Simulated assay, not measured.
Amino acid sequence: MTGTTFSPLHENFLAVIKSYYQLTKPRIIPLLLITTAAAMWIAGKGQVDPRQVLIVLLGGTLAAASAQTFNCVYDRDIDYEMLRTRSRPIPSGRVHPRHAIVFACILGILSFTLFAVFVNLLSALLALCGIGFYMLVYTHWLKRTSTQNIVIGGAAGSIPPLVGWAAVTGDLSWTAWLLFLTIFLWTPPHFWALALMIRDDYAQVNIPMLPVVKGEETTVKQIWLYTLLVVPVSFLLIYPLGEAGIVYGFFATILGGIFIRKAWQLQQAPQDKQLAKSMFKYSILYMMLLCTGMVVDSLPAMHQITATVVEYLSSFACNA
């Protein structure tokens, strides 16, 4: 494969470390860890073991890094063709594909072992499933064949909250699956906004992303539809599940309203890449702050404050 079989080129050991670090696409991982942590805090009713959190987040980091490294190996041909990705470690010749595969396997094994030994087997299997689904279903099967690639493939990015929940409880409840569904529905607006920004790159290497195959207007309509789905679904955590309260409701209302407004603005100007960029960036902020709202709402101290405020307001209303 052209551009991917060069001998590794490095000036020093630190350059080697940097190249392998870049293989893991580290900018993607923090958001996955935030969703994992949010699930842990809700599952633990706001009280979690710091040691367990550290282990789970480390295991999740290793699993995500493994999946992303495998992805870099598989996609090295299209990475070489696109100017935006040609400088990545494998297409630039700084890391040999075989070495990257070994690295990815080691990361995956370490992740599974960490979960299985120090947490529980269910969380270990879920993390392993995340790696497998991302590689086999999304990267290998869907990414180069279907416009629905990131819809179905989005299930891989929805697994971290399942891992976090299972780590605390040892099982999977309706709440865990609701967190999964929320991220699953959030993924299309998030990723298609990015696809609108770099549509030409995908077209250059024949990746059938929705904007490439169906055009911008169809894509923004789909973004609008999924945004209208994910925002109401986020409130199911309050009712009927009863796992969140007023504080989370405040976060979800404000964040959801802005999310819908941005999706509407993008629908009015499908070819405006600045609006697509704004939508993409906000989608990240939306999920980060929504998870923050989950954590804050779950804290026992916040429950006490909320109960006190509600009692005061009730008393004031009765005396008015």
Rank of each mutant, 00 (worst) to 15 (best):
W177A: 02
P211Q: 03
D201N: 11
V117E: 11
L142H: 10
T182H: 09
F112H: 13
Y134R: 14
F184A: 06
A195I: 01
P188S: 14
A124Y: 04
G170Y: 04
F115Q: 07
L210G: 09
F180G: 00
K143G: 05
A155H: 04
L162Q: 10
L125Q: 06
S146L: 08
L185E: 02
D201F: 05
I109H: 04
A156V: 14
L110F: 13
V119N: 08
G170H: 06
T147L: 01
P208D: 09
L114F: 08
G130I: 02
Y134A: 10
G154T: 12
Q204P: 00
A155V: 15
M135G: 03
L179F: 14
G164F: 07
M197D: 01
T175E: 03
L136T: 00
L107V: 12
A203V: 12
L126E: 06
D171S: 14
T182F: 13
G154V: 11
C129Q: 05
G157N: 02
L121E: 11
V151C: 11
D201M: 05
M135N: 07
T218H: 13
V119I: 12
V151D: 14
W141Y: 15
F191Y: 09
L122I: 11
A203H: 13
T145E: 13
V151E: 14
L142A: 13
L185S: 14
A176G: 13
L172D: 02
G154Q: 09
G130T: 08
F184L: 15
A193K: 01
L114M: 07
W165V: 12
D171I: 04
T147D: 01
W165M: 14
W141G: 10
L196F: 09
F118G: 02
I106Q: 06
A156I: 14
M135T: 00
L210Q: 05
S173M: 10
V213L: 09
F191M: 10
L128M: 10
S158A: 15
P189H: 12
T219P: 07
L210N: 03
S123I: 08
I106F: 11
M135Q: 12
W165Y: 15
A166E: 04
E217L: 07
R199V: 14
A167K: 05
P161M: 11
F115C: 07
I150P: 01
L114C: 09
I198P: 00
Y134I: 04
L172H: 08
